[in-house]
Design a protein around this nucleic acid. Structure first.
Lengths: 338, 338
DNA sequence: CTGAAAGCGCTAACAC
DNA sequence: GTGTTAGCGCTTTCAG
């Protein structure tokens, strides 16, 4: 409120505000002597420029928005860490929003970002995002936009994803090779980019592995954990021998563990499990979980690097319409029978 | 950049900017007719007020800073979720910063917040924060400041914590009752408020339980996981019968699980473990982990509520100097021998 | 009920 | 090398 500003400094130094400003910004037209005087006083009084005055004047905010669909999640936490490690040294600030897997919330968030609040947006869309008008509007408004993980093919910009198709293919193949003759695919949304690709990989692996896919092998789950455990339990309770489960989301693997306990069967003897997951300690689960882990930190830092290049460039081109794939890693452990 | 602004709207409507502004803000002195006309056009053109112009003018930012020492962590994720759920409906934005357990980073972050960038700060200090000058400066600058979990007793403001002393006491007591005669306390920092309190609880429980504390029962760990596993392994390898471990941080419990595997001993037979932790699925670890879980979401929402009351008040008082304790919950599972 | 004008704090032409 | 002035987009006196 009563914070110190340039005018105030100028009065104390008997200089004009513009000189003070230039001195603080190391303009070449200011003498070393005044620069020192000005900086000394600024430091002494703990002067910090008002960021919003600067933003208004300079038409940039040194702020980036990050929109994720879920907060309590290792993957997104690591992505943000990657973003922050690249942007913080350049003095950028991060506005972090949680769309809570709700398109309406996503729309609201996005509508707040088209008028200069941020210099760029990094986002992963919700499971439900099938209409892209709000994202098109952002893109049309000229705010640089980068997608990661859950992307929008329709928007021509840079996207960072992982090899979802291939990973799901390999995971499924692994289950088949471990002796599974029925493989259930647990998914939250078949509409979202990652869900689609993982489903494709799963289906192709089934075909190549000589298994005949049946519709009910796909279990579309919800955000309600209890419900999911219940439905997975039903599948487990059928007692099909040679059952495998490919969980496309970590939390569904966790629900499977709970279901296994509920039904009272043995993993991996009676059901084998592989999951997409970025948990830190899959080895200490009972049994140790085979996971496909995404290079979350690298995804975040890559997004940020491309944005920094763009934002710090003298003649910013629009962001290239391309998709960069960073490979995930499959780690086999006991849950899948090995 | 070329975004639509009030002046632009005014020209199109053949009105003055001030009238447009008033209409959009539902001023009582504007006729319903013009209000409708203005709002219609604003909506049609997707007008969004420039937030920084508004901030500059109104001397408030509708933005809150959240500073956490670590990003990939369930506890902090849940806290932020709690904060966001309260602040988002009021139109507040969240700048989230990660101090990475580094006081210097914390200082830098904080110094960027004293000049109007945010209307309030919610923070949990780093493990190393023992000098409070930078926090005092914030407090002196008049920006409302709320601490949670890891607090600064020295700064007279509102703090939300959990019953660290009591929880550690109960956890230790539980280990003693399960037959432990030596209990090792794993801690990252004995300087930080939570570390101090948990240590006190642990020590008092030892005393009341009739165990004679020895200096080497406290194992001060580092941020290096490998090193921690190594040092915990050494303790485990001593083969002390009746060994218990109280981990004051989740990641140290995880390291203990790895150490147990490395050394090849049995949990809970040869070592019993209880940990502070907010992990989502302690039941599916091998063995299921006894945890003291903090009410993270409530802590976050409580911080936010008090700030909202303050910020939305007509005559904001300074935030009361008080500490609110929200109780943690001890859940006993097999890792501690039950 | 509406308009004109000032100013939030900063920077960048434009003077000199 | 330094000062004067204008203006970023908005709200809010003050006029009428």
């Amino acid at each position: 409120m009563s914070a110190i500003n340039i005018k105030h400094l100028a009065e104390l130094l008997k200089l004009s505000p513009s000189t003070v400003s230039r001195a603080l910004n190391d303009s070449f037209e200011i003498s070393d002597g005044t620069k020192k005087r000005v900086k000394a006083l600024a430091k002494e009084l703990g002067y910090q420029p008002n960021p919003y005055a600067r933003s208004l004047r300079g038409q940039k905010s040194t702020t980036i928005a990050v929109i994720i669909p879920e907060r309590v999640n290792n993957f997104f936490g690591q992505v943000i860490e990657g973003i922050e490690d690249v942007t913080q040294p350049h003095g950028y600030h991060l506005l972090v929003y949680n769309s809570q897997e709700d398109v309406e919330v996503e729309k609201t968030i996005v509508s707040n970002l088209i008028n200069g609040r941020v210099d760029a947006i990094v986002m992963s869309v919700t499971n439900q995002t099938s209409n892209f008008d709000h994202l098109n509007r952002i893109h049309a408004s000229g705010v640089p936009l980068v997608f990661f993980d859950r992307v929008c093919a329709e928007i021509p910009t840079t996207k960072f994803i992982t090899n979802d198709y291939e990973s799901a293919y390999l995971g499924t193949k692994q289950l088949i090779e471990s002796g599974c003759s029925k493989i259930v695919f647990l998914v939250l949304s078949k509409e979202v980019s990652t869900g689609k690709e993982r489903l494709r990989g799963y289906l192709d692996a089934l075909k190549d592995g000589g298994l005949t896919f049946e519709e009910n092998w796909i279990l579309t789950c919800s955000e309600k954990e209890d419900e999911n455990i219940e439905r997975i339990s039903e599948v487990l309770a059928e007692g099909y021998s040679g059952l495998g489960i490919l969980a496309s989301i970590e939390k569904l693997a966790v629900s499977t563990y709970y279901a296994v306990r509920k039904v009272g069967i043995k993993m991996p003897d009676q059901v084998k499990v592989i999951s997409f997951s970025n948990m830190k300690f899959p080895e200490i689960l009972d049994p140790p979980l085979s996971i496909i882990s995404q290079p979350a930190y690298e995804i975040g830092s890559s997004c940020a690097k491309i944005l920094m290049d763009h934002l710090l460039s003298d003649k910013p081109q629009t962001l290239e319409d391309k998709t960069v794939t960073l490979p995930s890693k499959l780690s086999i452990r006991k849950s899948s029978g090995n």
